[in-house]
């Protein structure tokens, strides 16, 4: 697979195939992140299209100080914000939501029922193609701010500093959001495993 940097070099030379390959690589992620800022799929698509226009017209100004991904999501978030639909930075973080429901622990705060590890399932079950949709749906179901942090950090693999910078949040806030999001996803995968039977 060609790296983003290689595709970008071709894009600078006006290679439309390289552009379409980049779009294919990031369109879904961009739409999902955009959707956390705007109220409808239609507006998200406009914001994302606008982002790609920014990429095509600004590619000569990309200096490679951050990764292409970080640059791309920075453009997206700026576009999403200036589209002025939702300013959600001030929404407080619910730090009381537990990672695991209190009913799972006994009176001393120890696990009430034993937990089984998933290691043996990783290869044949969890990572199997059938898991994609379940996890996708779980991510789509996260509250907006948790969703954007999980998408950028865990799905796209951006470094923590970049996520903070792109979203304009503190390191501490990012960790809280990530923690809530990941905890919810784990719960979904856990119940999915139970539903499917072991």
């Amino acid at each position: 697979m060609e790296s983003d940097v290689e595709l970008l070099a071709r894009l600078r030379d006006g290679d439309e195939q390289a552009f379409v390959t980049l779009v294919g690589r990031y369109q879904g992620s961009l739409l999902r992140v955009a959707r956390t800022f705007v109220p409808s799929d239609a507006v998200a698509e406009e914001v994302v299209q606008d982002t790609w226009m920014g990429v095509v017209r600004g590619v000569d100004r990309f200096e490679g100080r951050s990764s292409f991904k970080t640059w791309l999501f920075r453009i997206l978030v700026n576009r999403a914000r200036t589209s002025g639909v939702r300013e959600h930075r001030h929404v407080s973080i619910d730090s009381t939501e537990p990672a695991v429901g209190p009913d799972r622990f006994d009176g001393n705060g120890a696990w009430a029922e034993p937990l089984s590890p998933w290691e043996s399932d990783v290869d044949d079950r969890l990572v199997a193609a059938s898991w994609g949709p379940a996890l996708r749906a779980a991510i789509d179901g996260l509250p907006g701010r948790q969703r954007e942090v999980v998408l950028l950090r865990d799905v796209e693999g951006l470094p923590s500093d970049d996520v903070c910078e792109v979203l304009g949040i503190t390191e501490g806030n990012q960790r809280v959001l990530l923690h809530r999001g990941r905890s919810r996803l784990r719960t979904v995968l856990e119940s999915e495993l139970q539903t499917r039977g072991r």
Partner: peptide, 29 residues
């Protein structure tokens, strides 16, 4: 139990990192 929990979280994160992008439809291309 907590060791298993930590492992489950690691698997959750790794699985999220392996999600593949949706294919672009021919129309979108």
């Amino acid at each position: 139990n907590c060791t298993a929990y930590l492992e489950q979280m690691r698997v959750t994160i790794a699985t999220a990192g392996r999600l593949t992008p949706d294919d672009l439809s021919p129309e979108a291309r």
